[in-house]
Design a protein around this nucleic acid. Structure first.
Lengths: 146, 146
DNA sequence: GTTACAGTTGACGTTAACGTTAACTTAGGA
DNA sequence: TCCTAAGTTAACGTTAACGTCAACTGTAAC
């Protein structure tokens, strides 16, 4: 039996609030967890893993929650494929889905690579600026010591 | 005399709306341009350049407009240094400013590099996923042709 | 000079992404 | 069994980042 987590455990583990967790569930970003008889949410480790990837994409890519829904639905497909359940009868249903999926993933990749390039440019600019600042400080200190 | 631009020219050039330009000025993100006698804003090329860097940082780094204010004030320092006006009397005033500035820039760099790392991870994950999807499609097509 | 288009300043409206409060229920230890 | 801490839903509040509308003014071409 996989260990279960209450909402506050998950919140603390992921650096979110309970409100945010319920909100993400409300807008369909997080799949509703099982409940106890009393109605209390019991999250699994998978929920936590998913949340962390979500937060990562939100912070790093700056995606809106709407965009995250699409992004997650993609990596969801990934998971179901990772499971490795493959029967030939199943494949016939999957092929069109895969063919639909391919350009979407490809596009996702292009977007990230564009951002990556720009980000590297910005890093280099700031790096150079830092170098100049440090050089200026060193130079001025040198003058003072003479 | 440097060419001047009206608000709608700038808006189109930068892919923003006029409202957004006025808003950015209102919150101190964009320095107020000169006005005609009638009160009409006349932007310079520098305004445009600055705006483009702003938009870049907003989109790529996902900074809030508040964070952008800090970010911009840094690159502002950069510009004033790039100008290269240096007198020894001036230096004495600048040294403490530089010493204050250095850790801020350094920190900015750290933040960007962290994001960069995570971004590269995500790109690799998606890349691998794409490979699997394409392999699956190829495999299924192969089966069909037999 | 007048017409039409683009500019100006308020001021109120909107959407996303939660925060906060209230009123109530559940779970688990003493 | 009772008490408290943590859970639940429902509903209203808040902030950022603009959109939109109204009422008015400046500018360029005719």
């Amino acid at each position: 039996m996989t260990a279960k987590f209450k909402i506050d455990d998950v919140a603390k583990e992921c650096g979110l609030t309970k409100r945010t967790l319920r909100y993400y569930e409300e807008i369909g970003l997080l799949s509703p967890p099982e409940r106890t008889d009393g109605g209390i949410r019991m999250y699994t480790q998978e929920h936590i893993d998913r949340l962390k990837r979500l937060i990562n994409a939100r912070d790093v890519l700056g995606f809106s929650l709407q965009e995250l829904q699409r992004y997650i639905s993609i990596t969801e497909e990934l998971e179901s494929h990772r499971q490795g359940y493959r029967q030939i009868s199943d494949d016939k249903e999957k092929l069109p889905k895969l063919i639909q999926l391919e350009p979407v993933v490809k596009n996702q990749l292009v977007i990230i690579e564009e951002k990556l390039e720009k980000m590297i440019e910005m890093r280099d600019e700031i790096q150079q600026f830092l170098n100049r600042v440090q050089a200026a400080i060193a130079r001025m200190n040198g003058e003072n010591e003479q």
